[in-house]
Design a protein around this nucleic acid. Sequence first.
DNA 1: ACCCTAATGGCAGTCACTGCCAACTCGACA
DNA 2: TGTCGAGTTGGCAGTGACTGCCATTAGGGT
Lengths: 206, 206
Amino acid sequence: MTTTPPGTDLRERRRLATQAEIEQVALDLFARNGSERTTVDDIAAAAGVSPRTFFRYFATKEDAALGANRAFDAALARRLEERVGASTSLADLEDCIADVLAALSAEAGSIERMLRVRCLVIEDAGLRGALLRLDAEQTVAFFARVAAATGASTVDLRTRVVAETLGAGLRAALDDWAARREQGEDADLVATYRRTCGVLRDVTTA
Amino acid sequence: MTTTPPGTDLRERRRLATQAEIEQVALDLFARNGSERTTVDDIAAAAGVSPRTFFRYFATKEDAALGANRAFDAALARRLEERVGASTSLADLEDCIADVLAALSAEAGSIERMLRVRCLVIEDAGLRGALLRLDAEQTVAFFARVAAATGASTVDLRTRVVAETLGAGLRAALDDWAARREQGEDADLVATYRRTCGVLRDVTTA
DNA sequence: ACCCTAATGGCAGTCACTGCCAACTCGACA
DNA sequence: TGTCGAGTTGGCAGTGACTGCCATTAGGGT
């Protein structure tokens, strides 16, 4: 393993470029025709790549559209990595998520991608299914990570509830945010998330 | 439309019988080999039915195993129907869910079916995906139902949070219950659910 | 006995997805 | 500069999920 220089790799850059290209055309085609009426061959052809190659980049058709969410998940995982051993209270983890959302809002590209996916998902059952699956996997991973940090057993009820609750809050916030943005309202993602968490608190205590 | 007498229909009974038979063998095969390594042809053959007929009963392979959850969803929907106009506070809806769980616990068959599915789901990624999708659809339906009852808009944040939170609590409770039961512990479903809701309250207020 | 309809099976077809192999290309090193 | 190894791609054949269509069979009311 004579590792090549890290960032400046032509192959790596090409790979990322094709991946981005595929994601782009997939989003376009899904938006125009729906994921149901779009075939992998369509996407591959539009991206100038063979169907076989498509599956070297994405495991499923729907997966090609969910890059924004995978990026968010990765960012959250990194953020949690940084603060191993820190508190695992709901409030602190909520701050943690808000931080990642803020970072995401800062870079222009990411946030539009996120919005685009969320809007598609509202009306596309196939995509919604794929996203739910991804969300759930992320929630499980999140649960495992927090459990590991606190040394809790893998069946600890409290940790599971924390993870599920945070997932539920985040999902509700993203949906609400996307719905508002689609109606032309200039909703801020972090503010929406904070408000959602507030509602969650109100609802459970009232 | 000269409607036939409701319950006592030979055709209806036969249909239900084959459906139950397919579900049964699907659960068996999934438990033995996993859903991934089980084909629809396998299930159909074991149930003594053609593959084409299988798809007249279930939309997907995984769907054949999720009868227990669909039954629960239907029961919950009926329960909500009965109490239209009643309160939509988290606590009251929690009672509502607890009632349905209690009714389910009363009839011996249902609860075992539920447990069986949950245990399979723990280790079977394909089934887990299908169940998550079903759960999410149910959460959305639940949300729509509650929103309709209160006359709230379809983008009401509070209602969405209530629905997501209840879904999260229920999921955590069912997982915890199944995990305990699998370890030989004689956990009660309703009690587990109540305890989970308690934890949820603690976690959000602390 | 007679018909209408529901239920089934078989068949052909589409499409998602995978394993395998051959061709090509980048990047390193002599 | 020539060459070699590894990474990347395309094509092809194959499996398996799922659907539309049509012919056949089997309730159940007249």
